[in-house]
Amino acid sequence: MATAAIDTHDAHAGGEHPPTSTGLNNTKVAIWAFIGSECFFFASLISTYLIYRGRSPVGPFPHDTWKDPATGHVFKGILNIPITSVSTFVLLMSSLAMVLAHSAVVRGDRKSSKIWLAATAFLGATFLGFQAYEFTSFVHEGLTIHTNLFGSSFFVLTGFHGAHVTAGVIWLLTLLSIDMKRGLTPDEAINVDVCALYWHFVDVVWIAIFTLVYLIK
C-alpha cells in the first residue's frame, strides 16, 4: 500500500496534476470557500438595508405612500412587485437551465450543452434587463442613490447583486464560446460545475433579497 502510494506520486510527478488529499477538485474547494465568504458580504449589505428600513425622514419609500410637504407631490410605494416577481421567476428558471447545461456537459451531449448554456446566459441577461428597467423607472419616479437612506441602501444592495449576475453572465458566455469553439468535454464538466455553484448562489441570494426587500412590508 505504502509503496504503491509513493509509486503513484512519482507517476504524477511526471506531468499530470497530483491527486488532492481529499480527492476533491481544487477549484471547487476554492469556490465553496468563496461562497462562504460571500455569505458575509451579502449579510453585511442585507443587515445595512434592514437596519436602515424606515429610518429615512424623506421618501419615496418602498411600500408606503409619502407626500412631499414642500411640493405636495405624492409618491406611491415604489417597489413594483408584479415585475419583480416575473424577474425572480426568470432567475429561478435560469438555475434550472444551469443544472441542465451541467448535466449535458457531463453526458458529453454538446448540442444540449450549448443550448442550455445559452439559455442560462439569456435568462440571466433577461433578469438584468428587468433590473435595468426597474432602476431607470425608479430614477424617473424620483428615487436615486442620493435621495434618501432607502435609495442608497436599496440601490447598493440590489446593484451588487446585479453585478454578481453580470459577472455570472460573462462567465457563462465564456464557457459557451469555448463550447462552441472546441466543445467542452466531460472531463471539463468541473469547470461548468464551479460556474453553476456560483450561479446558484447568486440565485439564492436573490431569494433572500426578494423576500426581505420586496415582500416584507
Binding site: 502510494a5 503513484t8 499530470e16 496534476h17 491527486p19 488532492t20 488529499s21 481529499t22 480527492g23 476533491l24 477538485n25 481544487n26 477549484t27 471547487k28 443544472v99 451541467h102 448535466s103 457531463v106 466531460p186 472531463d187 471539463e188 464538466a189 468541473i190 469547470n191 460545475d193
Partner: peptide
C-alpha cells in the same frame, strides 16, 4: 484552469469525501 482531479482514487484520508461528483448529481 486546473484539470479535473476528482477522478483520483488515491489516499482518501477523510471518510466519505471521495465519491466522484459526476455520479452523485440528481
Amino acid at each position: 484552469m486546473a484539470a479535473d482531479q476528482s477522478h483520483s482514487t488515491l489516499s482518501h484520508d477523510e471518510k466519505g469525501n471521495a465519491s466522484p461528483h459526476e455520479h452523485t448529481h440528481p
